[in-house]
Design a protein around this nucleic acid. Sequence first.
DNA 1: TCGATTCTTGACTATTCGTTCCAGAAAGAG
DNA 2: CTCTTTCTGGAACGAATAGTCAAGAATCGA
Lengths: 193, 193
Amino acid sequence: MARHKEFERDEALQKAMEVFWARGYEATSMQNLVEHMGINRQSLYDTFGDKHSLYLEALDRYQQVESRKLFELLEKPGPVKKAFRQMFTGVIEGSLCDGEHRGCLMNNAMSELAGRCAATAEKTRHNMAAIEEAFYRALVRGKKEGELKGVREPRAMARFLYNSFQGLVLMSKATPDRKTLEDVVKVTLSVLD
Amino acid sequence: MARHKEFERDEALQKAMEVFWARGYEATSMQNLVEHMGINRQSLYDTFGDKHSLYLEALDRYQQVESRKLFELLEKPGPVKKAFRQMFTGVIEGSLCDGEHRGCLMNNAMSELAGRCAATAEKTRHNMAAIEEAFYRALVRGKKEGELKGVREPRAMARFLYNSFQGLVLMSKATPDRKTLEDVVKVTLSVLD
DNA sequence: TCGATTCTTGACTATTCGTTCCAGAAAGAG
DNA sequence: CTCTTTCTGGAACGAATAGTCAAGAATCGA
């Protein structure tokens, strides 16, 4: 029929996600996106619609690509508490290395847009539910395997851990002090004992 | 000498703070500010400088006005755990009532700007230190009064509580589900036992 | 090769952005 | 009163914003 696109849709979307991740929604201009995505302005509009639609797609991709890493870490056989510790310290290490202090795109979206954009709120809630569920499954497994004997209410515990996790992501955007962040992790994980 | 200003500087700043609080930094235009502050454009620039300076002043005012409420709550004689519970459930109640889902201005600033604005990062760190210190003093008091016998490391505990608190403020922007938020509070406060 | 379709390109809208200019009104001091 | 200073209000600035248009280049089926 006709000509093919000269770019890969997924690669372009990945680039867009990275820009939104680093700069947020409002502070990202279409010009920023055109430059970082490496595609033409019109191709961008033809392929992804307007800025807001592109942002929502970027959230979807983040969920698929980044959140999957969490799921894999938690489903790996072995001590559950060790997996949680790895997750939490991963946030600290990642933040101390990241000069841009990007944090987590879902966390950023929740803060910047969820309050006034229903679609964004919905996507962040969906992401939250997925992570909470992964936490829950890990806790139940830890209980069954005799590791987490002290965990009485895995559902509430999963929600608590998700909350602490997101709090840590947020705090690490402003706090370069490793000791402070490690204190948070230490007390948080102590509830698993 | 000359004419007086027709507006109160503090009242205007308060209005500006409310706009930034509800809409964030980037999504707030000078036009928004002019309208909500109820003063003239030129007066705004004469009195507060540019948008960024006004934002930083709004952060200062927030710290003085809003954070003071936390300090007073924690310093009030009586059970410390009860004061913390009041603080945390206050976040839930406030969020469920607030149709704008404003959250906390410092929390929002941390998320939106701390990563790329050193002045904002510094102010949020200062706010964090002040609240952590208030938490710490409350915990030490609770220990001394024999209420919080289980608290071994009040410094780490204060940091943990601050983290959970900020996490809750963030989560409540997207989650209208009271049960979920209450689960978080329940587990968080259980570490005080 | 040819025609149909789709992609790419860069110029081009109209609007909004933060910020400044300027003329006139208001209010103190003498 | 007059002079001087400050505040007010609206128009205006250039730059940047999100989004569109039209024309040419590329690639398919036939």
